[in-house]
Write a protein that binds this DNA or RNA. Structure first.
Lengths: 198, 198
DNA sequence: ATGAGCATGTAACTGGTTACATGATTTA
DNA sequence: TAAATCATGTAACCAGTTACATGCTCAT
């Protein structure tokens, strides 16, 4: 029981302005990308279902050389559904983090593999941090005084803190992993360790 | 292409000691719960598939009054598969955070609803923080000198930082949301705002 | 010429949840 | 006497990804 729910991200995109399925995909990637995603395989069938339930309207824009654009817009019922969804408590994110699983069982593998994986995480989030700063500035200047701005900034702030946290965790863990790798190679050296021991 | 993969969490659990499907469920909940989960609907069929592929062995423990325990243990092939998996780069976590989606579109809803949702997030992670501290202490004392300990602590540390970050974000966002709620009620008051305006 | 961007959609599949069925034993 | 714990499993869903099919235009 409990299903056939409309996609809130699609409803949300259409609450900004009318769009085609193609546009919705781009919107989700560009603006919600760091905490949400939708694939065409979901979007197109979902739009049809939502249309048949009266949540959205379609208008066809004729084009030559390409398929016609099916431009969807929110109907009154869709708007109501979206506001109802906004008020409900969110479902908790489902926990599935492969990196942490690998780290947890790390002593069954080689430290260098774990190190590579954590370094990869670090650089991913270093890149993201730069992007967040860029987007934040852009939002402030280009969309100053849009009523949505404070909310966009709050969600962006979450991403920023999350990436910051992951960079810090990576650095702390890399120190520990290198220590472990070193201890292991001293305990069972192929070529005898020099540096310090005897 | 690329499928029929064995469940790494199950392989990992069995790498600790032989277990039944029931035990695996408990192990995952108790020790991997904040970054992983498996339901019976996955575990039991998966164990059969892994058995037929020669990754695990079964031993039946007769019991009266209950179903017999099917105790699984890692076979050599399963151990190899697990180590191979450990060395591969992890799949990035799939981004789907309903709370952030609601926050992003927050200006379409009522600030009080967002406030309630963020307060809920804060208290969830305040509770988790306490638990992490407890578990960390326990690990240090009960499992000192187990070779897995540093790895368990690293993954725990991630959870701790993540919860800490979410508490901080919640507090910062709650301040902002309350400010917005206030501004909105001053702009369109049902009973005239007193306090400051005129 | 090659690839990216525009634009639609479907089919096959994999992945995962939930509810159901069974039933004894222990604990509150 | 009610609920939790032990212990297995299946069937019916629901959710989501990927590959495929089509074909034009524009920039490199």
């Amino acid at each position: 029981m409990r299903s056939r729910a409309a996609s809130p991200a699609i409803l949300g995109a259409l609450s900004i302005c009318p769009m085609s399925g193609y546009d919705i995909r781009k919107f989700v990637q560009q603006h919600l990308g760091y905490f949400w995603k939708e694939s065409y395989g979901q979007i197109y069938p979902m739009l049809k279902r939502m249309h048949s339930r009266g949540l959205v309207q379609v208008r066809v824009e004729r084009q030559s050389g390409k398929p016609n654009r099916q431009v969807y817009s929110l109907a009154v019922a869709g708007s109501a559904e979206f506001e109802k969804w906004l008020a409900e408590p969110p479902a908790p994110p489902s926990p599935r983090n492969e990196l942490l699983l690998k780290i947890f069982f790390g002593h069954r593998g080689r430290p260098q593999d774990a190190i590579r994986q954590v370094e990869e995480l670090r650089s991913t989030h270093q890149r993201l941090l730069q992007e967040y700063v860029r987007v934040g500035k852009w939002l402030h200047t280009a969309n100053a005084k849009h009523p949505g701005l404070p909310y966009w900034l709050m969600s962006l702030d979450f991403g920023e803190r999350f990436s910051q946290m992951q960079v810090e965790w990576s650095e702390s863990s890399l120190r520990e992993l290198k220590r472990l790798a070193n201890a292991a190679s001293n305990a069972a050296p192929k070529k005898p360790a020099r540096k310090k021991g005897r």
